[in-house]
């Protein structure tokens, strides 16, 4: 399967040139750009690991691309996403988020149905990868 979180998951994986162009757009909007990585991509896993602090006051994507390279080298076989944060009043939240690295194989999620009263179901999503190994060893090739 292919996890389709983020802005551009339905497009072919972005090249570094395409990523830099998106980062450039974020910087032009005055957003701070941050890198995050995880091997637990559950849609309710809000807090991925931060790769350093959000990068404020950059003028050029080169700085982000350098960090992305370092992050990918240090964390192969994980999900890495770029988040752009807008501190403007009324937003003060992420304005853009897209995946820039995925593990080679994505086993996806199992839907667990707990049958309760009537025909009511309680749903839980479990990641196959998280279930089979502890953090750091989940997507080892």
């Amino acid at each position: 399967m292919r996890i389709t979180q983020g802005c551009f998951s339905f497009l072919p994986d972005l090249t570094d040139t395409q990523i830099a162009a998106q980062v450039n757009y974020c910087l032009e909007q005055g957003w701070a750009v941050a890198l995050e990585f995880t091997d637990d991509p559950h849609p309710r896993n809000t807090y991925w690991n931060m790769w350093g602090l959000p990068m404020f006051d950059l003028r050029d994507p080169a700085g982000v691309m350098g960090e992305l390279k370092a992050c990918r080298e240090a964390n192969p076989e994980t999900y890495v996403r770029i988040n752009a944060f807008d501190s403007t009043k009324g937003w003060e939240t992420v304005r853009m988020s897209f995946i820039v690295q995925r593990p080679t194989a994505e086993p996806g999620f199992r839907l667990v149905r707990q049958e309760t009263q009537g025909r009511m179901l309680r749903y839980t999503m479990e990641s196959y990868a998280v279930g089979r190994a502890p953090e750091g060893a989940r997507y080892a090739p």
């Binding site: 399967m1 389709t4 839907l111 179901l121 999503m125």
Partner: peptide, 15 residues
């Protein structure tokens, strides 16, 4: 409908 929602969420990893 909720069966459809949850099934689709599990298969896409997306809310």
């Amino acid at each position: 409908c909720m069966e459809g929602v949850n099934q689709a969420a599990a298969q896409t990893g997306e809310s």
